[in-house]
Amino acid sequence: MITVTNLVRKFGDVAAVDDVSFDVAAGEIFAFLGPNGAGKTTTIKILTTLLKPTSGAIEIDGLDPATQANETRKRFGIVFQDPSLDQELTAFENMDLHGVLYHVPRKLRHERTEMLLKLFELWDRKDDYVKKFSGGMKRRLEIARGFLHTPKILFLDEPTLGLDPQSRNQLWTHVKNLNASEGVTVFLTTHYMDEAERVADRIAVIDHGKIIAQGSPDELKRQTETDSLEAAFLILTGSSIREEKADSADQIRQMAKMWRR
């Protein structure tokens, strides 16, 4: 369903994604794991037509996102890592706008919106502006929105970020159900190894833009001779904290320091 071959994406001189290749079969739940700054989000952005690759080949359901962007977009749904709601609209309006953009017929749109907002316990607040929501409520709304239409492929970039255990449980149960009943292919990232272990059929571990291990959770544990995915992950990626690349504000601050000297 997803085939990536020798994918490279550079930002300036830095290769955020550095010669990555992997396959995701139809109906599979695939977890993309890696420390902060490993290149997970960048890969997802390339797969979802938001960024152009520097080099390499991608196929999504037989389509090339770089040249057949619009066709590709019809195939997937996505929950972004960063916020992507319209804060000036209500929860319901955000859902409705999404449904219209994704061609969900009106009646179905309203039924599913009600079902999902109830599932993620937002139905009481459906007419409130999103800017009045708590962080976790916004997150829940983004996830509910992601499930409004049923795509062939679902990208989930750290969907459980900031969620309480109840909502997390709802989310993964729902993902499992969708996968089982509709055969939706799922491509997810998370920093919670127990989640990955629970839902993923297969895992790829990425670090510094390169894939360093691939396999089922059991295979990864066997390969590293550990008994939990968390331990396996730490052995594969080392236990040092990743120094985040300085963002532009930091860079300016650094420049300012240099000038002062």
Partner: peptide, 15 residues
Amino acid sequence: QFGFLKETLVAPVPR
């Protein structure tokens, strides 16, 4: 800046 742009950019409608 508020991220909503991404939502419209990945939607399956021509830009």
